[in-house]
Amino acid sequence: MNTTFATILEIVGTLAFAISGIRLAAAKQFDWFGAYAVGLVTAIGGGTLRDVLLNATPFWMINGSYLTVTAIALIFVIIFKQYLVKLENTFFIFDTIGLALFVVVGVEKTLMFGFPFWVAIVMGTITGSVGSIIRDILINEEPLLFRKDIYALACVAGGIMFYLGEKMGFNSITNQSICGISVVAVRLLAVKFHWSLPALKDDTTNPIKD
């Protein structure tokens, strides 16, 4: 992937994810610093874990613009908070955009490091989803990834489509587009048609006896 284009994707993804995190923090009435912290870990959490696993310096430690982008996201939410907090679909929109862009970056960066495609799909999923896990823990919510909502599977679907595109000989830009669109499409279709994975239930009863 072109380095400049990869940076652009990461910055746009950072902005989208940061807005989604700060928006949820605003709904919980966090102060500005708390909201910034939530937005930041939402945006850099997945990419940081990916880079650590790839034995690379975390991307935000090389380019400080991601911290600035999160600050811009905070200002955006402060100005438009009354609209963003009221509109439930704003969280979904920004979260889905960030998810799609970060999956693309995660897959591409892993392949650039010479790992096989199955590793790239796992890393794309980590890049897209780990930040949201940290976000939900910080705001005291059950992580979205562990609910029945189609989230991580959307990342996997995007990675698989990227793989199929490469096998068919598509160029890099086409593969990136297919991957990102697939993530968005799966999430939208899952919401529209109420797709979900079955919940794992423990139907056994073990009453405690005195």
Rank of each mutant, 00 (worst) to 15 (best):
S65D: 03
I126L: 08
I134Q: 01
G128Q: 09
F113Y: 12
I62M: 14
I62Y: 13
L111F: 03
A100D: 08
L99F: 14
F91T: 03
G106H: 06
V69N: 10
V103P: 00
T125W: 02
I93T: 13
V77T: 13
P143G: 04
I137P: 01
I133R: 00
I134S: 03
I126E: 01
T70R: 07
L138N: 04
T90E: 11
G124Q: 02
G124N: 09
T70G: 05
I137N: 00
G98N: 01
W60M: 08
E142P: 06
V122S: 06
N140T: 03
F92E: 08
F102H: 12
L84F: 15
F94C: 12
F115Y: 15
T127V: 00
G124H: 06
V107S: 00
L111A: 02
S65Q: 14
T57V: 15
E108R: 10
A100G: 07
G131C: 01
F91D: 04
L138T: 05
W118A: 03
L145P: 08
I97V: 15
E88I: 04
L144E: 05
G131N: 06
A71R: 11
E142N: 01
D95N: 07
S129G: 08
W118E: 12
I93F: 15
I62D: 15
G98P: 05
T127R: 02
I150P: 06
T125Y: 05
T68V: 15
E142A: 03
V130R: 00
L153D: 06
V105R: 06
I133V: 14
A56K: 14
T68A: 15
A71K: 02
K148I: 01
F113L: 12
P116Q: 06
K109T: 07
F76G: 08
V130F: 00
T125S: 13
E88Q: 08
E88H: 11
T68F: 15
T90Q: 09
G114M: 05
F76E: 09
V122L: 13
E141W: 00
A154H: 02
V122H: 00
F92D: 10
Y66P: 08
E142V: 05
F80W: 11
G124W: 01
I121A: 06
N89I: 09
I150C: 05
P143F: 04
A154Q: 04
F102D: 10
I78D: 10
F102R: 10
I126Y: 00
L67R: 09
G98F: 02
M123A: 03
F94S: 11
V105T: 13
T125M: 14
G106P: 05
N89G: 04
T57S: 10
L153F: 15
M112G: 02
F94T: 06
I150M: 13
E142S: 09
T96M: 11
V104A: 07
L153K: 02
F80N: 10
L84K: 12
V85R: 07
L111H: 04
L84N: 08
A120K: 10
T96F: 02
F117P: 08
Y83I: 07
L101W: 12
